[in-house]
Design a protein around this nucleic acid. Structure first.
Lengths: 207, 207
DNA sequence: TTTTGATTTAAACAAATGATTAAAACAATA
DNA sequence: TATTGTTTTAATCATTTGTTTAAATCAAAA
């Protein structure tokens, strides 16, 4: 059967399990999710989880890998492309991540948690193909400073600021909605505003 | 000072359990921590956990409450004080949270996770005494906009930016250290720089 | 010293949980 | 249709995990 077609329509047991697992693991993490919960969510017999994926851990590893790929995809797509100045790239990053996190706000917390326990060695350089592209971005950043267009700050500042401005509203989303009396729709709108605002802000900050 | 002294001297069984539980729960969350692990870490017999705290859940609830208090303390101390313009307040917030998170970087992720599962109803208005003080801050913010000193943006933007700039480097700390080849000491130094930089940045962004 | 109540301990319990098994149902194909 | 390999199921297993128990130890008061 055609693989591409299969993926879209795929209603197979294996796909149902993976889908349920992804939803639950991404939302609640490894330890908070029980195999029986996944089975119920997927509407399948408990034993099929082990039949198709050997163990809960191996299933989780697959979800982890897929989630990291979605998260890295935006980075490599933007940074690998040599065109565009630093602020254009920041805008592209903002657009990609805001759109991704609008779809799946839990992804942010999932990745942050993964960074912290790091049982998957997610910073493994061979695994992580972004090493090169990041170097080019770093060069652009240094040049910007040398040309006097940007204040001389440590890369940790720049990274913290970019990631912080893009990701934080999603990490704090439940609080934002409740505390600032914002609806889902308004929230989405505000996030879309940020796609344009963040590069402008970063530029203004680092002048 | 008296409190710290007490903390050091208090070597009672109850205190040892709470200390171990706080360390582990804050680091790994409720589900990843097992009662036997707490007992070992505290160097006490397993049964004493239930003897002093009834259940794992009740022990966790206490740690949760204490952690939320540390986290809210900075907010109320700064916002309750009517003195100071908005940027002075932002600086005070930055100083408090950066110092707090330097001491305990895991606190950030713990609170974010608490915001998400929210089994403790942490936005409960009666529980949360900050309601009033926040209102005054909001007024200051609106006045700033009406006076044309600040761009007219949604409060969600302001909140996201302030929290994002302060908290994100700690959430992403393990990545920062590894990826940007930064030592613990350098990281601390950079975080201290941010105390002054963040209010300046916020001002520049929102001009 | 004896008594009394509080604390600590080793052992055990019951429920939850991840995994396995053996049989049944199903699907294809010869 | 009969055969064969695959998928699904109900039942069960083994371990983990939160909690309890009953006895032992300790410390202060009588």
């Amino acid at each position: 059967m055609a693989k591409q077609l299969k993926k879209i329509i795929d209603t197979s047991t294996e796909a149902k399990i993976k889908e349920a697992a992804k939803k639950l693991f991404t939302q609640k993490g490894f330890n908070a999710v029980k195999t029986r919960e996944i089975a119920t969510e997927a509407g399948i017999n408990l034993a099929l989880l082990n039949y198709y994926f050997r163990s809960k851990q191996k299933l989780f590893d697959i979800i982890m890998a897929e989630n990291l790929i979605s998260f890295r995809k935006g980075m490599s797509d933007v940074l690998n492309n040599e065109k565009g100045d630093i602020y254009k790239k920041i805008e592209k990053l903002a657009i990609y991540y805001i759109d991704t996190l609008k779809e799946n706000p839990n992804l942010a917390l999932f990745v942050i948690n993964a960074i912290h326990d790091n049982q998957h060695d997610i910073f493994n350089s061979t695994e992580d193909s972004l090493h090169q592209s990041r170097k080019h971005f770093a060069k652009q950043f240094l040049k910007e400073i040398q040309d006097g267009k940007m204040a001389p700050i440590h890369p940790v500042h720049l990274m913290s600021n970019i990631i912080g401005l893009i990701v934080m509203p999603f990490l704090a989303k439940p609080m934002m909605l409740k505390r600032l009396h914002v609806s889902e729709k308004e929230f989405t709108q505000i996030m879309d505003e940020r796609k344009k605002l963040i590069p402008i802000w970063i530029k203004a900050m680092l002048k």
